[in-house]
Amino acid sequence: MKLYDIAHSRAGDKGNTLTLSLIPFDSADYEWISREASVDRVAAHLSNSVHGEIRRYEMPNIHALLFVCEGALQGGVTTSLTADTHGKCMSGVLLDMEIAGDGTG
């Protein structure tokens, strides 16, 4: 299964930094998703696009994760040569990541 099956995401940009929220539809899946979407696994999944450091913030108050990806936007909105200069489509790329089940069948 994919993150897409249990979560939603919105991408944002600040300069050359990409932000990706990761929000399970069901708050009960917060621990599961926190386990599966580790920084290392997300970094590996995004490695063709994100070359800088990735920080993960845990937000148990709203049952959500936030990934902040440095140096991810090929220079940023204003000077990048990519089609999606904001990196807005990267939320879809994140949700495409394969994850293991929660073990409860």
Binding site: H8, S9, G12, K14, Y57, A64, L66, V68
Partner: peptide
């Protein structure tokens, strides 16, 4: 709803603290 509010709360945030 909670889903739309959560997406917007985290939008373009680089340090939620």
């Amino acid at each position: 709803d909670l889903r739309t509010a959560k997406e917007q709360l985290l939008y373009e945030v680089v340090d939620p603290h």
